[in-house]
């Protein structure tokens, strides 16, 4: 890579398949990406495009069976997370790689206090005693903006609102100062005004703590506001990956382009009619032998139905999986689009 920021995570050719009664589901196909120190990588894509399964696979949190990680490497600090033994992996999960899941109510345990759930990783991974862990737990709750933190440690999850539970989840994920935070749709279930609070918090925390973040969302507005780099998934594959500005200003994959055109805006000109992407997302019954977007693609040609295009570099840190990626000139694509900051 031209800019020499060190990689904290390097995922290579990940493939995950589900075996179901009705056959196989090829949920993740040859997914490769990396994550630099301190950067925020946004991951977008339609429902079922493989975002969650990719992230669950790379830290082996995916239940198998039914899932099976068929191949791939996940390099983290000189180790391959798909190869390390369970004890090593447990030490990494929750300590060096933190998680926030899609639904806070299912991932917080309703029968334990919030304080207990915050202390647990601190005592297990950081070797703190009860009193130290208590103090740190209160600090963490304060860090995520929960008023009266010390007292609220004794409360149970149901005593918090949805937005506060999401903050608690973030506090738990941050407890052991992870190098990487993976957040799966952390604000999707929240109202916009509460989402705005959380996004503000994440901006602050990045400045203070400087960890690398993978942020999954289907909201392109959220991505535009917080990401340094964006990865677009479709049909279990990465179809485009670019610095945030390049992705929004000069998208190269027909799916990314269409996606950006279908969304209405609250500011600026109001479109007379919404652009649509006709058709439905693909069903992933077998390893794809053709471009997964071909049936819905407005510019598809004969080869698209015959060969699955590989990711190719089309600009600075800009990769696209499309047979026509080079065909169009894409004036100005990639150039000068490096985001600033974040590369600590």
């Amino acid at each position: 890579m031209p800019d020499g920021a060190p990689k904290v995570l390097d995922v290579r050719n990940l493939n995950t398949v589900f075996r179901t009664r009705t056959g196989e589901v090829h949920a993740v196909n040859r997914v490769s990406f990396d994550l630099e120190k301190g950067e925020l990588l946004g991951v977008v894509g339609e429902s079922g495009s493989g975002k969650s399964v990719t992230m669950m696979s790379l830290i082996r949190l995916i239940p198998s069976p039914p899932a099976e990680i068929r191949s791939g490497q996940v390099l983290f600090d000189g180790m391959d997370l798909l190869e390390v033994d369970d004890d090593t992996l447990r030490d990494i999960r929750g300590a060096r790689i933190g998680f926030v899941f899609q639904d806070p109510m299912t991932s917080l345990n309703p029968v334990f206090t919030v304080g207990f759930q915050l202390r647990e990783p601190l005592m297990r991974h950081m070797g703190m005693n009860r009193r130290e862990a208590d103090r740190r737990a209160a600090e963490l709750l304060e860090l995520v903006g929960i008023p009266d933190a010390a007292r609220r440690l004794r409360d149970y999850p149901h005593q918090f609102s949805g937005g506060m539970r999401q903050r608690v989840m973030i506090a738990i994920a941050l407890a052991c100062d992870p190098e990487v935070l993976i957040a799966d749709e952390p604000t999707t279930a929240l109202d916009v005004t509460i989402q705005a609070q959380i996004l503000e918090l994440v901006r602050e925390l990045r400045q203070k703590l400087g960890m690398a973040i993978i942020w999954i969302t289907h909201d392109l507005g959220v991505i535009a506001g917080i990401a340094d780099r964006v990865m677009v998934m479709y049909g279990g594959q990465v179809v485009e990956e670019a610095p945030v500005r390049a992705l929004f200003k000069s998208p190269r994959h027909p799916y990314t382009r269409a996606l950006l055109e279908t969304i209405p805006h609250v500011r600026g000109k109001r479109a007379e009619r919404l652009e649509v992407i006709e058709g439905q997302p693909p069903i992933l019954g077998a390893a794809p032998k053709a471009c997964p977007f071909r049936d819905r693609c407005a510019v598809a040609v004969e080869i698209c139905g015959r060969e699955n295009p590989a990711l190719r570099e089309v600009g600075a840190r800009h990769r696209v999986a499309c047979h026509l990626a080079d065909a169009d000139t894409g004036a100005g694509s990639g150039t000068g689009a490096e985001p600033e900051g974040a590369h600590v």
Partner: peptide
């Protein structure tokens, strides 16, 4: 407040 909280899909904005 509600309108200002809506994130805009434009990184320059």
């Amino acid at each position: 407040a509600l309108l200002s909280a809506v994130p805009e899909p434009d990184p320059d904005l």
